[in-house]
Design a protein around this nucleic acid. Sequence first.
DNA 1: GCCGTGTGGTTTCATTAGTAACCACTTTGC
DNA 2: GCAAAGTGGTTACTAATGAAACCACACGGC
Lengths: 184, 184
Amino acid sequence: MSQSPAPDTLTSSLAEPLIAAEDGAGMGQLSQFLPYQLSVASNAVSALIAERYRKRFALKIPEWRVMAVLGDLDAAAPEDGPRPGMTQRALTDATLMDKVAVNRACKVLEERGLIARAPNAADGRSHIMVLSEEGRAIHREVLPLALATEREMFAGFSPSEEQRLRAMLERLRSRVDELAQGGS
Amino acid sequence: MSQSPAPDTLTSSLAEPLIAAEDGAGMGQLSQFLPYQLSVASNAVSALIAERYRKRFALKIPEWRVMAVLGDLDAAAPEDGPRPGMTQRALTDATLMDKVAVNRACKVLEERGLIARAPNAADGRSHIMVLSEEGRAIHREVLPLALATEREMFAGFSPSEEQRLRAMLERLRSRVDELAQGGS
DNA sequence: GCCGTGTGGTTTCATTAGTAACCACTTTGC
DNA sequence: GCAAAGTGGTTACTAATGAAACCACACGGC
C-alpha cells in the first residue's frame, strides 16, 4: 500500500510523517468513489475528443455539438428541398448546454461561415440557424471522425457491454436529476 | 412559421424549414454519442455532489478530494501515533488533479485551519500536509455524506451492475489514456 | 390600440480551471 | 565544491464556464 518514498537518511527514533501514495492504481477510497471514477473517465474522454476536433477543424466541443445537431437535422431533410434549421432555443434543448454557450458557439460558427442565420418569420426575436454549404461539408467530414473515435475508445467493449453502459449512464442521469430537485 | 432559411434570394412557396428537437429524449445522433452521454452523466453527478458539499461544509470538489485522500491516510494510521501526511506532489498523483489545483486547495484548507503544513525534513522544497483535529472531524462527517450520496445515486443498481460500471469506467479510462499518447 | 408579463437572445461580470513563467531547493556530474 | 539540470511549489496570466442583468420582441388582457 505504501512505502516510504524518501530515500531518506534520517532514521531518528521519532516518526517522520511521510507517505507514498503512488498514483491512480490501488490507493485509498477516493479511487473507488464512483463519482470520482466517472469524472476522471469523462474528462479523459472529453480531452481526447477536444484534442482531435481542435487539431483537425479548430472546433471546440460546444461548437461541434451545435454542428452535430444541425448536421443531423440537415441530413434528415430531403436533399433537394430547402435546408432546415433551428433556433438557438431549440439548440439549447437539444444539446443540454447553457443558452449562453449555444449563443457563443453559434457566433463563432457564423463568423467562420459554417452556419447562417435566417430570419424567423414566425418570431422576430429569434433567427434560424442553418448550416452553410461549407458547414455541411465539414459535418460530413467531422461526423465520421467522431464515430471513429468512439469506436476506438470502445474497441475493447462488446456491443452488449457498450449497450449496457449507455443504459446505465442514462439511468444514472435521470436518477441524479431526480435527486437534484429534492426527490428521493 | 414559414420561411426559407436560404439567404436572400429565397422566396417562393416552399415548405418551412422548421424544427422540432424537443429535449433530451429521442432525438438525433448526439444523444446516442457515448462521449456525450458520459459527459452529461458526469456533469450531473458532479453538480449534485458539489451542491451538497458546498451547502454543508463550504468545500469545493478539489478541496474535498484533498481532504478525502488525507483523511483516508489518516484513518489508516494508528490512532495513537503521529499523524501522517503527504506532500502536494503526492496529492497531485493521488487525485489526478493539476498541481496548481492541489496547491490552491491546500491553501484554502490551511487558511480554514483544516490542514497544517509541517516542514519536510527530507526535502526542503516541500511541506507535508496533515489534517488538523478540526480537519479530521470534518472528514469524519463528510465521508459518510459522500458515501450516502453515492448510494442514493446508485439506488437502482444492483451490486454487480455497479461493479460492472466501475470496471468499465476503469477500462475506458486506461484505453483512452493509451490513445491519447499515440498508441492505437 | 396599450399595457404588463414572458421569453429568446445578447452582453456583462464574477468564478474557475489550465498554462506558462518563476523561485527555491535539490541532485547530479565533474 | 561548484556549475548544470531537474523538481516541488508558487504566482501571474489567459481561456473557459456560469449567473445575472438587460434588450427587443411576443402574447395576453383590457
